[in-house]
């Protein structure tokens, strides 16, 4: 099989290699920060499949991230399954939920689509609070020590070790990145972009655009769930804050800043934004002002994001 867009493929490999080397250069604090960045970048990459490539702006991806968190966390907490099994359970929960919500939400468009996804996501968040005896509500649940390590294929992984967490996050990030490379840079990716650019035209070329959008929605939600499941299990805590509206907005902001519809944009956006937010949280509690201001600034002056601007100016293969 021939690989389309070889330059981008090489850049992906170089990025992964760079991220691997990074752990030997950074302080412990920054390694932890980058662990979180890698997981949240997976979330933003999932979001980007729908928003960047397919052109559908969701305001409810917190529910898919949350489905991953709770699918994984609850099955570990209540059923005591091993972490890899819990991880899979989280992903499956997110896939099932996103397929179901996609079936409904994709009957609407643009503004209605945004509001519908927002409302479903709020309903999911409120359900977590309503069943707080089971879910832990806003207090959350801390996973038992038995769920802080696992062995897979003879490999013992300790979830309290910074090095183990970083490399696990990097592995998942790498798998998702290469998977999305295949998904977005091949024929299916071309169809997603075709729907974004001109849905009516795509329908009149014989495609069931609803099915294409549902595929994008489910993949997008499923990957968000991968990130959620990993986050919950890795830090051993699940709580309703993972399904808040703010989480959806962060995915949107990270993607917008990095460059919607570019494969590596979400990583860039997540990295910059997370470091900025961490820095600001020390200074002021009102870091949400900065998120708010950035949403406006990016919308006004920077709609294609960092990598999108690079692509449009100099590097057309950066997509």
């Amino acid at each position: 099989m021939s690989i389309h867009n070889k330059k981008l493929f090489l850049l992906c490999l170089a990025t992964l290699a760079g991220l691997f080397v990074l752990q030997f250069l950074l302080s412990d604090y920054l390694v932890l920060a980058f662990t979180r960045i890698l997981i949240l970048a997976v979330f933003a990459m999932g979001y980007n499949v729908l928003m960047g490539y397919t052109g559908l702006v969701s305001l409810g991806h917190a529910m898919f991230f949350g489905a991953g968190v709770y699918g994984a966390g609850l099955s570990s907490y209540y059923l005591g399954v091993s972490l890899p099994v819990a991880f899979l359970a989280g992903i499956l929960a997110a896939i099932a939920l996103s397929f179901l919500i996609g079936l409904l939400a994709l009957r609407t468009q643009t503004v209605s689509f945004m509001i519908v996804t927002l409302m479903f996501s709020q309903a999911a968040f409120l359900l977590i609070l309503y069943f707080s005896e089971f879910t832990g509500g806003d207090q959350g649940l801390t996973l038992p020590t038995s769920a802080r390590s696992f062995s897979l294929f003879g490999l013992e992984v300790d979830m309290t070790s910074d090095v183990a967490r970083y490399n696990l996050a990097l592995t998942v990030f790498g798998v998702v990145l290469l998977g999305l490379f295949a998904f977005t840079q091949g024929p299916v990716g071309r169809l997603l972009v075709a729907v974004r650019e001109n849905e009516d035209r795509t329908r009149m070329l014989g495609f069931d655009t609803y099915a294409i959008k549902l595929l994008a929605f489910t993949v997008s939600g499923g990957i968000s769930g991968v990130a959620g499941a990993l986050y919950g299990l890795m830090f051993g805590y699940i709580g309703s804050a993972f399904a808040e509206f703010k989480i959806s907005i962060e995915a949107l902001l990270f993607t917008l800043v990095g460059g919607p519809g570019t494969l590596l944009g979400p990583l860039v956006g997540t990295g910059l934004m997370t470091l900025l937010i961490d820095r600001l949280s020390g200074v002021t509690t009102a870091y949400l002002i900065v998120i708010g201001a950035l949403l406006i600034v990016v919308t006004l002056w920077f709609p294609t994001g960092i990598l999108g601007t690079l692509r449009d100016r100099w590097l057309p293969w950066l997509k």
């Binding site: 643009t110 907005i249 509690t285 949403l295 406006i296 919308t299």
Partner: peptide
């Protein structure tokens, strides 16, 4: 804001979410 994004419906939602955070947090402060 709105005039400059030409009242694009999606961009308007995104930027009024930003406005929501700004007003809320400024009031908090």
């Amino acid at each position: 804001i709105l005039k400059r994004i030409n009242y694009n419906p999606e961009a308007t939602i995104v930027s009024t979410i930003g406005l929501m955070y700004i007003i809320q947090q400024m009031t908090l402060i």
